[in-house]
């Protein structure tokens, strides 16, 4: 399947400051793609290029295999981190306006808005003014406006910031459902636990550069340290420390770091040979958070 998004050496400078420094990555169609990076790493600059808000100084962006152009905004839905609506407009009119700017007909727009209003149980909001709504309610409207035109690529910049847990779950469910229906989603954040929960692929941006990319699994594999944790019953052989490096140990569990020559089977066989009863055997993978901190920290130090 063709990649929904492909960046080839995209570069953007503001004066002397290089905001995006030759970033290249591919985003497979239909995935939820985490764009990670510390504050000021260049995520927003990159997103603005993808959403055609600004243009790259050099490099090419392909959307669905086509060079990014003027007709593509209609296929993209973007919810910026800093959100805003016209406060004086009525909710219904506002959504129609934004939907029509994305190429929907008046009739289609009304139909879609009706659908979403029903889904969120907010049918009576149509003629309320935006400023009469609470902040959380405005976020819901903002979300609807972002997806009303059924974008192929949805870009969410810190979508959960400022949302209460109930609305967070609501939006999370919608993201899942959209993704199931084939929408590719870029999820930009610096909150790692959300990425681990939601994303299949990630790209890590730091200081304008793409430092890491791939599926969450492959990234973790790349950074795993051959660590295993065993829950057991019985007595460990006394000389276990001579064969394996123990990184943590308590009454009925032990974590070891295997050296390059050993694999997990060797360790397991060793334990079995000594008559231990194994309850659980896990590979300890690094969390994205650890990888993130390591990568970002490494590049800041260098």
């Amino acid at each position: 399947m063709m990649d929904i998004l492909k960046l080839d050496k995209v570069r953007k400078t503001y004066g002397k400051h290089v905001a995006v420094d030759d970033v290249s990555f591919d985003m497979p169609t239909g995935c939820i793609f985490g764009m990670l990076g510390p504050n000021g790493a260049g995520k927003t600059s990159l997103i603005r290029i993808i959403t055609t808000i600004t243009r790259a100084d050099s490099g090419v962006v392909y959307l669905n295999g086509e060079k990014l152009g003027n007709k593509h905004p209609e296929q993209i839905g973007y919810m910026p981190e800093e959100r805003g609506l016209y406060k004086k407009m009525k909710v219904g009119e506002h959504l129609i306006y934004l939907a029509r700017l994305k190429g929907l007909s008046n009739k289609m727009a009304k139909q879609e808005i009706g659908h979403w209003f029903e889904k969120f149980g907010i049918e009576d909001w149509w003629s309320k003014k935006v400023e009469e709504l609470s902040k959380g309610m405005q976020q819901k409207i903002q979300f609807i406006s972002t997806i009303i035109h059924k974008p192929k690529l949805l870009i969410l910049d810190e979508p959960f910031s400022g949302l209460d847990p109930i609305n967070t779950n609501l939006i999370k469910d919608e993201i899942d459902e959209l993704n199931k229906n084939g929408t590719s989603i870029i999820f930009s954040t610096h909150r790692m636990e959300q990425v681990e929960e939601i994303c299949e692929h990630i790209v890590l941006i730091n200081a304008g550069k793409n430092v890491l990319q791939g599926s969450v699994k492959s990234v973790k594999d790349q950074f795993k340290k051959n660590k295993f944790k065993v829950h057991y019953e019985g007595t460990l052989p006394v000389d276990v420390a001579e064969h394996f490096t123990i990184t943590a140990q308590n009454k009925d569990a032990i974590t070891v770091q295997l050296s390059a020559g050993n694999n997990s089977n060797d360790f397991l066989q060793y334990l079995l040979r000594h008559g231990l009863h194994i309850h659980a055997f896990n590979e300890i993978l690094p969390t994205l958070n650890e990888i993130f901190i390591r990568q970002v920290g490494a590049s800041t130090n260098s």
Partner: peptide
């Protein structure tokens, strides 16, 4: 100031 502009210019020039 109310930040609608970024949403707008993701749809129009």
């Amino acid at each position: 100031v109310n930040r609608i502009v970024e949403v707008m210019i993701s749809s129009v020039r």
